[in-house]
Design a protein around this nucleic acid. Structure first.
Length: 645
RNA sequence: GCCGAUGUAGCUCAGGGGUAGAGCGUUUCCUUGGUAAGGAAGAGGCCACGGGUUCAAAUCCCGUCAUUGGCUCCA
């Protein structure tokens, strides 16, 4: 008797072994047609694998992460089969599913493989998929497995086999292709209806640059052609939103090789945007008890020896700077925290001073490898919206809670509505990796999890992802087109207070060690601006955008009336300018639309006579006529709503 | 840093061993208009940089630099 418990709690009983697919068929034929894999007792299995004893069962379709990854893993095998047939003699390394598709690392053994070959491979994959070859799971002894790959002369699989234990080894076979694989796989290749080879890149065998470089072939597949089309459309959309492209078009920032790679130059509009974001956060921080501090861009190397950063991250810092006379050694600061610790130490602290929240938009410099640089998201000089909260251990929970409130407010205002909080805790199997006593760790981990729950955050817990100095809470957002980004972070730190010997006098008249909380809601201004640009496709919220209103006179004759309107809007603190070119109104509208100015106002004879304006909303169109004051108040009202707490 | 691709006008890109091309932008002139591109003329390039091959190189080869897709890394 086999009892299968389904996610809704219902139980199905069978006389004999049963496969997930059979269970699915019983529920409905339609479901069975869509089942790619199954989660059996929390482990993902082939839907065709027999379940011999009582189990909980969750059927996985393409809508689930497990279903997708199974589908893509199987697709990697299909890709490998196609490559073997088109490029005889290729050696295969590994081929896992990834977030958007899959890849296979292939040694082409000197055969040329370029993007011109993609189409051929895609067609071959589909041709093979149409055969509906089942994925067969084969348990095999290590000796037989080794023999198989020796005969096939596949050095990579043989090396992988070395690390595997006899009795644990499985092959998967579909059609004429057999691969060493743990599985699981979809029932048969026929599910794969659309295939696309996306790109190729070099990748070292086992990620080690001493090893041979293989060709990583990226691909993606879908159950329906329509889904592939939609996916490609999404990539197109992402290209359109690329902050590097929009940054250029909208005049936000610029990179000059003469200044240096990875060192962004903020143009007036970009600086305006960023400054506004900073002021927005500064104002919120002022309201919630943060104190501003400012620290220099360099600091004595000793500072970083004390903090431990030099030992751990010295290789990722710019080379030290030396004074010409005294032989002192300085570092361009890669972190703000040591400076802030010194501010803490500037005077003796009492429990009455705590929590002490020191905030600074601190610019830091880190040596990123040249190949790592990417627009504003990965740069060598960037500004953190940094703050360090020094508090008593018992206040950690409350302080983290306040940081969460701040982050949630920012997300709400900037319309990052889809996010999860990742709670990073210690790796229980590896306690030596961490500093600080267990008691504090336990308390901090508990505090973070409790407060995250109390604040109603959707959380995922990751064991072993904590920093060596304390647990973390990171916010992962999904942007408007579904891409994931890591934004704000909150980190609890026992290390630096220890290293800098920070103390405060408690109400018991004894010395105590504070806990330090690092937090940066935006992370870095550069990276955040990049994400924001892509999130809103350059259409910034009204309160934030460099130019809120563009005044468009119908002809030169109305430029003077336009100036009156401008002056009035300025009195309402509305950022506006006039398009005085002698172009037709259609042209002025088009250009303002492309500049993503949220509101245009058209002024001509009619408006000049009645003292009104005819506003037009970006992307939407004409709003009719109204008094200038009415429009100004309308703008002010919209901003108020956007910022409402 | 490593591998691949790319580098031509301010921008987007075509071309390709023998006067350097287009569209957009820009400048000047004409046009003065009612909700997403009015017209004309002109300016603008050491074809990334340095070597080589060649009678001749923007074009072919080598190197450098930068950009870019990945890999590795990310306090």
């Amino acid at each position: 008797m086999v009892n299968i418990t389904l996610p809704d709690g219902s139980v199905k009983s069978y006389e004999h072994k049963v496969t997930s697919l059979q269970v699915a068929t019983e529920i409905s034929e339609g479901l069975a047609r869509n089942v790619l894999a199954a989660e059996v007792n929390g482990e993902i299995w082939d839907a065709t694998r027999e379940i011999a004893s009582d189990a909980s069962l969750k059927l996985l379709t393409f809508d689930s992460d497990g279903g997708k990854s199974t589908m893509w893993h199987s697709s990697a095998h299909l890709l490998a089969e196609a490559l073997e047939s088109l490029f005889p003699g290729v050696k295969l390394a590994i081929g896992p599913p990834i977030e958007n598709g899959f890849y296979y690392d292939v040694d082409f053994m000197g055969q040329e493989f370029t993007d011109k070959d993609f189409k051929k491979v895609e067609e071959k994959m589909i041709e093979l998929a149409r055969l509906k070859s089942p994925f067969e799971r084969i348990e095999i002894s290590k000796a037989d497995a080794v023999k198989y790959f020796q005969e096939k002369d596949d050095p990579y699989k043989l090396e992988l086999l070395e690390g595997l234990e006899d009795g644990q080894i499985t092959f998967y076979k579909q059609g004429g292709f057999t691969d060493l694989c743990r599985g699981p796989h979809i029932p048969h290749t026929g599910f794969i209806k659309a295939a696309k080879v996306m790109s190729i890149a070099g990748a070292y065998w086992r990620g080690d640059e001493k090893n041979k470089q293989l060709t990583r072939v990226y691909g993606i597949t879908f159950l329906k052609n329509k889904d592939l089309t939609a996916h490609l459309a999404l990539l197109e959309e992402a290209k359109k939103r690329d902050h590097r492209k929009l940054g250029k078009e909208l005049g936000l920032f610029h990179f000059s090789p003469t200044v240096g790679m990875g060192l962004p130059l903020w143009l007036p509009k970009g600086a305006d945007l960023r400054g506004r974001l900073e002021n927005f956060l500064k104002e919120e921080q002022r309201k919630t008890g943060y104190l501003p501090v400012i620290t220099p861009h360099i600091g004595n190397k000793k500072l970083y020896e004390t903090s431990g950063h030099w030992a751990k991250y010295g290789d990722d810092a710019f080379k030290p700077i030396e004074t010409p006379q005294e032989g002192e050694v300085y570092l361009l600061k890669p972190m703000n925290c040591p400076h802030h610790c010194e501010i803490y130490k500037a005077v003796p602290r009492s429990y009455r001073d705590l929590p002490l929240r020191l905030a600074e938009f601190g610019t830091v410099y880190r040596y990123e490898q040249s190949g790592e640089l990417h627009g504003l998201t990965r740069v060598r000089g960037f500004t953190q919206d940094d703050a360090h909260i020094f508090c008593a251990p018992e206040d950690v929970k409350e302080e983290v809670g306040k940081v969460i409130d701040l982050v949630l407010y920012i997300f709400k205002v900037l319309k990052f509505e889809d996010f999860v909080a990742q709670v990073s805790l210690r790796d229980p199997g590896n306690p030596d990796k961490y500093i600080g006593d267990d008691e504090n760790w336990d308390a901090a981990e508990k505090a973070i999890q409790e407060i995250a729950d109390e604040k109603g955050l959707k959380t995922i817990v990751e064991l072993g992802e904590a920093a060596f100095y304390g647990p973390k809470l990171d916010f992962m957002v999904r942007d408007a087109i579904g891409r994931k980004w890591q934004l704000g972070t909150v980190q609890i730190d026992y290390n630096l207070p220890e290293r800098f010997e920070l103390e405060y006098k408690g109400s018991d008249n004894e010395s105590h060690r504070p806990v330090m909380i690092h937090r940066a809601p935006f992370g870095s201004m550069e990276r955040f601006c990049a994400i924001l640009i892509e999130h809103c496709a350059g259409k910034f919220p009204l309160w934030l955008t460099p130019e809120q209103v563009k005044i468009l006179p119908i002809s030169d004759r109305f430029n003077s009336y336009a100036k009156e309107v401008l002056e009035l809007l300025n009195n309402y603190d509305i950022r506006a300018s006039i398009d005085e070119r002698s172009e037709k109104i259609g042209r002025k509208i088009r250009d303002a639309e492309l500049e993503r100015v949220p509101y245009m106002i058209i002024v001509g004879e009619k408006e000049a006579e009645s003292g009104e304006v005819s506003p037009r909303k970006q992307g939407e169109g004409d709003m009719g006529s109204m008094k200038i004051e009415t429009f100004a108040e309308f703008i002010q009202e919209e901003i108020k709503e956007l910022l409402a707490n």
